[in-house]
Amino acid sequence: MSARTTMGIDIGSTASKCIILRETPNDGRENGREIVSKALIPFGAGTSGPVRVIDQALADCDYRKEDMAYILATGYGRNSVEAANFEMSELSCHACGAYFLFPGVRTVIDIGGQDVKVLRIGKGGALDTFVMNEKCAAGTGRFLEVMARVLEVKLEDMARLSAQSTERVNISSTCTVFAESEVISQLARNKNKRDIINGIHRSVAGRVAGLARRVGVEKDVVMTGGVAQNSGVLLALENELQTDIETSPLSQYVGALGAALLAFRKLGSLEA
């Protein structure tokens, strides 16, 4: 019998991610799955992103959609993925995906396009408890996007510029709209963009750390989501929480990875 494959699709607010996993001989943990394809399209729920991300993930491997033994969707747009056999909350998927990559994980900080989640991971990678931001873009990827636009810098350059900061500039407000005014005011005072960006990262870190402390921060701490690729935010958060934070080049795919892993569990329960 050929190895079974599953697909995990994470439709976020700003990006769609897809992972295809193949079964491999189990080594005793949940590992024993191999990533055979992954894709990311920078368009999320309600766009062409969901369809395109599936097409791209399939195009990059030798499988067809029909070869997938189970397809599990997650993320903000999870209910609109027609191809999916099942949908699950991204909180459960992030917990599962993070545990797969970092078996020692106890706390996951996921900063996505429009929300922030902090998860406490229990034994065996199960989601124990969690907290999410309220209806507010402060501290999210969207917040950083807005700030990048105001500062006329590329989002991907923010970490590099932040690292060159020489003067402390405080962005006190964490409301996106008010923070935007504050940034404009700092620019009007001829403050250096690098210092302002550094202040923005600390502002995000302060907001996220407040949320994390509600759950209680226990090591190992792992950061997932698109913002995890911004080393400026990561560093600011490490300073704020006074702890090392691990991340992975797959940080943006953790939800989709968790979905593909949970798809195997669904298969198992169907077969039981």
Binding site: Y76, S89, L91, S92, D115, L127, D128, T129, F130, M132
Partner: peptide, 15 residues
Amino acid sequence: QARTQLQAFADVLSS
């Protein structure tokens, strides 16, 4: 957002 949280909470309870 409420759906996401409640769905995850259902997972927590079920686990």
